[in-house]
């Protein structure tokens, strides 16, 4: 499981945790997160996230 980070606000998307509040189940790999998903903290588009080294 990987972690991705918002380039603007630093929010991290953890594949293990998902984003259940926005309909992304725990364990959802980044590649499967829909393209119209946006950072829940600041609204940055999925395409503008970066992968965090883990």
């Amino acid at each position: 499981m990987k972690t991705w980070k918002c380039i603007v606000c630093g929010y991290t998307y953890d594949e293990a945790a998902g984003d259940p509040e926005h309909g992304i189940a725990p364990g959802t790999p980044w590649a499967v997160v829909p393209d119209d998903w946006a950072c829940p903290d600041c609204g940055v588009a999925k395409g503008d996230f970066e992968m965090v080294e883990i």
């Binding site: 903290d41 600041c42 940055v44």
Partner: peptide, 8 residues
């Protein structure tokens, strides 16, 4: 002056 309105 917040991030989300700027994105919109």
């Amino acid at each position: 002056p917040f991030v989300m309105p700027i994105m919109q």
